[in-house]
Design a protein around this nucleic acid. Structure first.
Lengths: 144, 144
DNA sequence: CCTATGTCAGCACGACTGATATTC
DNA sequence: CGAATATCAGTCGTGCTGACATAG
């Protein structure tokens, strides 16, 4: 790929991404979890994580993660658990309520997106499906 | 495509998008235009637009667009032009300075993204290339 | 004593709603 | 008069840096 082809592809990619961000943000419902809250909770759906791990996974700083967690904990969606081996560490765990709210929010959002996918041709859905691993690798390459 | 396949695709698509947002935001340089400023200015690179048109294109409310424009105008990147036929309307136009700063910011960002594309296999670049029109159509389907 | 971890305080950006001119 | 256009005022969410307490 020539330099100018790469620049052209980058331009189109950046533009489509900008659009997609606004469009996906717009499917948030009133009173539901915010997109960043869903992201944080999704991370915790497998196992509890430390504050610093949450920050690293989310691409944000530790104080910002603390703030998110404080808000989620106030709403009873996560709980802080002290670590027996290292008293500096705080593990953050989904509560049952948090898990239920997360599943509801994920399902609603995914249904909306899935409904939009129904407007695409099979070949178009396939094109997006095949691009997802490549975008993941690109994200990796762009990460610090 | 079955419902569960569509839901699965939607899940993976939402997740990859979330990642991409953080990663692309992170390539902002200090003292440069912000991502939302670049978006606004890119809209104006073709022809002047009304405040309400900018808001609609950007997927934001009119007062938010006004605020963006005020900031850009304060920095000399755009100028407000009254409309002869309708005194309620304000057209917003790129200044020469705005055009130069926009081109510099676009080039720097696109170079960073293009450099990341270089880490991908040709087949992976092709996969993203082919997905872009499909994502555009998906954005269309998700728009209100 | 130095480092790691998490929190607190204060700030910036960018969105929102509701209220207000002004013009059509 | 009602609708359209843009702005202003005030608020909220989410990120940041710098300072700090506590633990290793």
């Amino acid at each position: 790929m020539s330099d100018s082809e790469a620049l052209d592809l980058a331009t189109r990619y950046r533009e489509i991404l900008r659009q997609a961000v606004y469009v996906v943000r717009a499917i948030e419902a009133d009173g539901e979890l915010s997109t960043s809250q869903v992201s944080t909770l999704n991370m915790l759906s497998g196992q509890p994580l430390r504050v610093s791990e949450i920050a690293r996974n989310a691409g944000i700083r530790v104080p910002s993660a603390t703030e998110q967690i404080t808000k989620l904990a106030t709403n009873g969606l996560v709980e802080r658990i002290p670590n027996d081996h290292d008293a500096r560490v705080v593990e953050v765990r989904l509560t049952t309520l948090g898990r239920h709210k997360l599943e509801a929010a994920n399902l609603r959002r995914n249904k909306e997106v899935a409904a939009a996918f129904a407007f695409l041709l099979p070949s178009e859905r396939q094109a997006i499906d095949r691009a997802i691993p490549a975008i993941a690798k690109l994200n990796e390459a762009l990460s610090p």
